[in-house]
Nucleic acid binder design. Structure first.
Lengths: 271, 271
DNA sequence: GAGTGGTCTAGACCACAAG
DNA sequence: TTGTGGTCTAGACCACTCC
């Protein structure tokens, strides 16, 4: 009686396919409003729950976003920020996040809080510290255009920074400088960074902190800066998916195992 | 009469919170079965659709997986495969995917098909070719333990490989060798790889091809191999999220802009 | 107040898995 | 055959947004 389009294809899939086609074909532009659920009920002769299932389907694909009391809107999926491959090169007077966000033309804000803690065991492991060692821990929330887009937690060995000018990343003469010039000022010259990226759905806490609509994934990065074999800083970083592009450029040595070494992978526990 | 836990908290959220706690506390182990929807209805005195909403919530968080006719099961979220930072180093007689999957102790299978095509404009752009240039295009599906885990499409300029021993990546003397030794054999020595990673939800096509349960995100990578400034191969790669860890190790030059160059980011259109 | 999405009821039938 | 999740009905009330 309704569509009966194809046997075995649920009605809500049919409706979702129709809406998706209109989105990818550009008939429904980025930011535009979809038919209301009640309009879908009338047009397709289905119950509210079926119309809703169609919208849920598209939301799960990250194509649309629902706004209570307003409607359903086509999401913009264009990444806002490029994390460039030269993000760790010197000169590096501005921290990475600030450079990158300004490149995207967005107002930038950072909230942070530094405390002295006992390093959690996975962190002690990443920093090459003994169990129970102290570390300076800084928690960050980054906002772009007023919206939170990433959060991270950074640990530095207290044995390295305790009692120095850079004990707290955002105080003293190197306040707000990036990690590289901060350690440069201690004559600890960072020469490599190791990153492990995984893709997953956010925890409810992360979804709340990053104001992620349902169905939006995140990239979680475990990052460690080293000078030689010594780890000087490690971080757990969570990015709102679809807002960031991560760029990597890696040289490929002409002969086996030069310069970067052949240390194999690292075992990093991810957030 | 039911839980009445807190005002304003929807019942399905309360149920989802309870189930999530039992999962993260380990009371419900990886792979174990959750209460059936009907059991949840009885235990919480709610209708089926509410019990279902709770399960949908956890599925959207990637915590559980539904199997029709069987039940709801706690997903294992441990990544199966590490893509190591030395994955592009020489010697490189085995292709990357094979090395990495075997490292994970899984049987590996690759399906591929190579055709000569006119390079799509975004691909021509990435390869530095004129519009309408020909390219050799290979489509891959990779399976681990019988399950598809990633898919990719690779393009190489026909002007470079056409009529040579390596025109088709899986035929001839260098059949099934990795991209680096293949081009080595042509005296084209690849010296850098550029990768752009984004995180997003799969398209319905991708979800079907990779057999992804609803709510599982993917990593999409645009990858280009170069010898000097000349691009010799570019790929669009899609990984099932939570099955891969991407590892990167990058040297940080002691002085600005050495060795790797300071070419800035690249504009790569992502799949 | 009118319109929107969010939650919910109390059922029903279907498709699939397993004994 | 029984039990599971998947889809669906025809309503209802609530919370939020905008006028």
């Amino acid at each position: 009686m309704t569509g009966m389009v194809s046997p075995h294809e649920p009605m809500y899939i049919t409706i979702a396919n129709d809406l998706r086609k209109r989105i990818v074909d550009g008939l429904l532009a980025k930011g535009s409003k979809l038919p209301t659920e009640r309009e879908l009920c009338d047009q397709w002769k289905v119950s509210g729950i079926t119309a809703r299932a169609a919208v849920d389907q598209l939301r799960g694909e990250g194509l649309v976003e629902t706004r209570r009391g307003k409607g359903v809107y086509v999401r913009s999926t264009t990444p806002l920020v490029r994390l460039s491959p030269d993000r760790y090169f010197r000169p590096h007077t501005q921290p990475t996040w600030e450079l990158e966000s300004e490149r995207a033309g967005l107002q930038v804000e950072m909230r942070h809080e530094t405390t002295k803690v006992v390093a959690p065991s996975v962190i002690a492991d990443r920093l090459g510290l003994d169990e129970g060692s102290a570390a300076m821990c800084t928690e960050y929330v980054f906002l772009m255009g007023g919206e939170p887009t990433s959060m991270s937690t950074t640990w530095e060995p207290y044995a390295l920074v305790g009692g120095t000018d850079i004990e707290r990343p955002h105080e003293g003469p190197m306040a707000n400088a990036g990690v590289i010039p901060r350690f440069d000022s201690m004559h600890l010259y960072i020469d490599s960074v190791y990153e492990v990226v995984i893709v997953r759905m956010p925890t409810p806490d992360e979804a709340r902190a990053l104001k992620l609509p349902p169905g939006v994934p995140v990239a979680a990065i475990a990052q460690t800066f080293r000078t030689g074999d010594r780890a000087v800083q490690t971080s757990d970083i969570v990015f709102a998916g679809e807002r960031y592009e991560l760029h990597y450029r890696m040289p490929i040595p002409r002969v086996p195992s030069v310069s970067i070494g052949d240390l194999g992978h690292e075992d990093l526990t991810l957030p």
